[in-house]
Design a binder for these strands. Structure first.
Lengths: 338, 338
DNA sequence: ATGAAAGCGCTAACAA
DNA sequence: TTGTTAGCGCTTTCAT
């Protein structure tokens, strides 16, 4: 029973309810001044006709789309999914609809996405990371809407920031291992140009090792992102082959750390007896596996929540200056490290 | 340097390029008849002015939004993320933009999402599962646009289908265990009303056990979805306490199966020596962990690819009848089962 | 290949 | 509280 007549408009509802289209329009806005009985009659008539409000026309006339464009590196990543989940919850009360895009860790793809999204006239943009192409920066700057960069502390922010220093977080982990008396520490991943947060984590590792006067060259390449469990396992095999005296290894994420752990188990290498393992991200797998994996929790949901709050404030004009909200990642010591 | 002037429109570009707005409009459509030099001049002028095409106005006038509404139970789920990823790739050539929503495994929330999405006038809708509220069904039916239900074989389809029988897939797994000589087999999860695919899997388990004349009451409740690793571990502890002679356990997903495996490892229960474990979904964790986990692969990416193809055909009017594309999940035997 | 006129469905701005 | 008028920025339609 597909409806072949043209879909009813506000005018049709107005006629059916015996009011003007403007009153119908008001009846569909929660806070508008309409007589309760009139509204009830209108909504009944709309329901009767199978009327569906047209956001496109509304958006054009009011110049408000209620879209928020959001880009993340990958859909299939529990950390970013958590951030987007919290963001969605936080924006729901304002009736904002997320346009979600994923960049595949590629700022060229990000540019393509942002260019496409800008045509939809979003009222704000939230991106992951602080590295963008010049054209992306132009597009965002010229839009004159609130911009939030997340999961990073950009050198030259486009607008607001909700993030943390990936380098510092890993440095704290190195400090911990060194304080346990370890000197031969390795790092897996963070070798791909595209993965800027991975690079930052590896840089943090190297900086900390240098600060402690230790060898910072135990670096295992894991290839282009996304770095998953398989790459972690392969990298650990390399490490065990080439530097078997390594005492601890920090992985670019919990997923690669879990892969590394599995590789040790297949080879009969005791964790943490023979080698300690740490990850990044506090993914569930690292909490459940045996031994559980020491990690750094960057509070992905908190990033989403704070971004939503910031956006609300910005859209209400309550923000005069760009805000930088720095998260403090916490180290979670678990069974995989001594 | 936020631009405080009003944003330029096609009229501004037209003036700058010395043509009519209609010609500017044509210059922005890939296949339109415009002189190459004219188009170049127009695009240069647009770039100069910082013009951004307005999809909202375009959509209203042409009655084509190029939106496709998509709902999945959870963002944070590698299976659904894979389907959406493949879908996005498949729809990109057509310039279609996905409006993604997640229902949290709740058909009431699905109704809220669909009602909201319909206001954006999407050109098609893709939902997960075949169970919907009456109002959701009305909304979708009356929209007179292509509808695809996925990840299931609905009894009374709304339109097209790309899915598989969750019950049958699990029955095949039971058959395998029985053929290995096992008789005391348990099932973890699938007890929550909201998780219809989980329920189907448990029903499949029970049906197969009955068919073999075996005890189908070794059912462990894992609570409301999403069923994650933690719930799998807790359920396995219950099972080991209450039915320690169980020979094999089938879990509602690989995530709970991995949790169950971890629980066994903590208790010193040998897998598969003492108990065999199987999951569902072919998540990466089950492929990497030690022992690797026997599972059922429902080809989430294939579901997305086929849905994209189906949608293309439907939007081109190449489909006269509703299509039901049945996927055949494959059993992957791995180390966690004898 | 290009242009002129009209209007998609809604709501801002005013009036009553 | 309700109504009237105009127009958001683009594209359909028809003309040249």
């Amino acid at each position: 029973m597909a409806n072949l007549r043209k879909a009813p408009t506000m005018l049709d509802v107005a006629r059916a309810a015996g009011v003007s289209p403007m009153t119908v329009s008001r009846a569909f806005k929660p806070g508008a001044m309409v007589n309760d009985q009139t509204r009830a009659r209108i909504l009944a008539a709309a329901d009767e006709l199978g009327y569906v409000f047209d956001s496109t026309a509304s958006s054009l006339r009011s110049q408000k789309t209620d879209f928020v464009a959001v880009t993340i590196p990958s859909l299939n990543n529990a950390n970013f999914a958590d951030t987007v989940g919290a963001l969605t919850e936080g924006l729901k009360p304002r009736g904002l609809q997320i346009l979600l895009g994923y960049t595949n860790y590629d700022i060229i793809e990000e540019e393509r996405l942002i260019a496409q999204f800008m045509r939809r006239k979003p009222q704000a943009v939230i991106v992951t990371g602080g590295q963008h192409t010049p054209r992306t920066r132009d597009l965002l700057r010229n839009a004159a809407i609130p911009i939030i960069e997340t999961w990073d502390l950009p050198q030259d922010p486009l607008g607001h920031v909700v993030g943390f220093s990936n380098a510092q977080a890993v440095q704290a982990m190195v400090d911990h291992f060194v304080s346990c008396g370890m000197t031969r520490i390795a790092f897996i991943g963070g070798d791909a140009d595209r993965d800027t947060r991975g690079l930052d984590r590896r840089r943090g590792f190297m900086a900390a090792m240098q600060r402690h006067g230790l060898d910072d060259t135990r670096l295992i390449a894991a290839g282009p992102p996304p770095i998953s469990m398989r790459e972690g396992a392969d990298s650990m095999c390399q490490l065990l082959d080439n530097a078997p005296d390594t005492q601890a290894v920090i992985c670019v994420s919990d997923l690669s750390a879990f892969g590394a752990l599995s590789a040790c188990q297949r080879r009969g290498v005791a964790v943490p007896g023979q080698i300690s393992i740490a990850g990044f991200g506090n993914y569930e797998v690292g909490d459940i596996c045996v031994p559980s994996i020491t990690t750094i929790d960057p509070s992905p949901r908190r990033i989403g929540e704070l971004s939503a709050e910031l956006l609300s404030a910005a859209l209400d004009g309550r923000l005069t200056e760009p805000v930088c909200h720095e998260i403090s990642p916490r180290i979670l010591l678990r069974e995989s490290s001594v």
